[in-house]
Write a protein that binds this DNA or RNA. Structure first.
Lengths: 125, 125
DNA sequence: GGACGCTACTGCGCATTGCGCGGTACCTTC
DNA sequence: GAAGGTACCGCGCAATGCGCAGTAGCGTCC
């Protein structure tokens, strides 16, 4: 449902990854992200992220006038951006691993009753 | 790094998962989460999450006076919580999968130069 | 030719959520 | 009785994604 919160801190890597594959302009990056599976990503979020990454030195940018439509602000990844991407990917991998471990403990419904705590259930005191 | 943003929207599942395994009180849940790998989780975040989940009906709570120390506010998972947990786990799995696919595209440095420069973006024309 | 629609980007303000920090309180130990 | 670990709460802040409105170029349809 609310995949929105899951994007926090991940949009950066996602955008970096997409741009690293090939330079792209905002509108295009949005499409590519959605095509990649992040279907609910908002365009404003992507534009904002691009600007932030650019401001942080992870991306460069150049404007290309379009024949059919408004100009396009292309973004390309910088060495710093590539480095960031590398680190972030690792951070993500570790994090995802941790989470998978955590979530593996409870299969949603099947719970090893053996270790059930006697749940005191003391009355309210 | 700043794992803090990655926790967004995930702390909920994490806490649910931990409590689903066994009832626990705030201070304890914090320890368990940290032990599970979320070492940087703040206690205030956990307490807040517990309260939020409780308010949402995913958790029940009962106070147990402790012999050595302050009282402990135990939390247990409710059927609704278990359901939430199940859904969330799936959401997470799907999301993680998407991300892994996205990040797989760029190995940080190795990029298939072949597809460089193009962005045709098969416009509707 | 004006309305409409798609492309493309920007700015504004809001909502969520994790966190630092300070405060309260209980209990044990030196 | 001061110190320290346990245990919880509330306040206010910061980061970030998003909806929405606005601007603008260009093509199409009636």
């Amino acid at each position: 449902m609310d995949t929105t919160q899951l994007l926090k801190g991940v949009l950066d890597v996602a955008v970096l990854a997409v741009v690293a594959q090939e330079d792209g302009y905002g509108y295009d990056v949005v499409r590519r992200l959605r095509a990649a599976g992040l279907e609910d990503v908002g365009d404003a979020s992507v534009y904002g992220t691009l600007r932030r990454l650019y401001a942080g030195g992870s991306l460069t940018s150049y404007v290309v006038p379009s024949d059919e439509g408004p100009h396009r602000k292309y973004y390309g990844i910088t060495p710093l951006g590539r480095q960031e991407l590398g680190e972030q990917r690792q951070t993500w991998a570790a994090f995802a691993d941790t989470m998978s471990g955590l979530l593996a403990g409870s299969t949603g419904n099947t719970v090893p009753l053996e270790r059930r705590r006697r749940t005191g259930s003391e009355g309210t005191r």
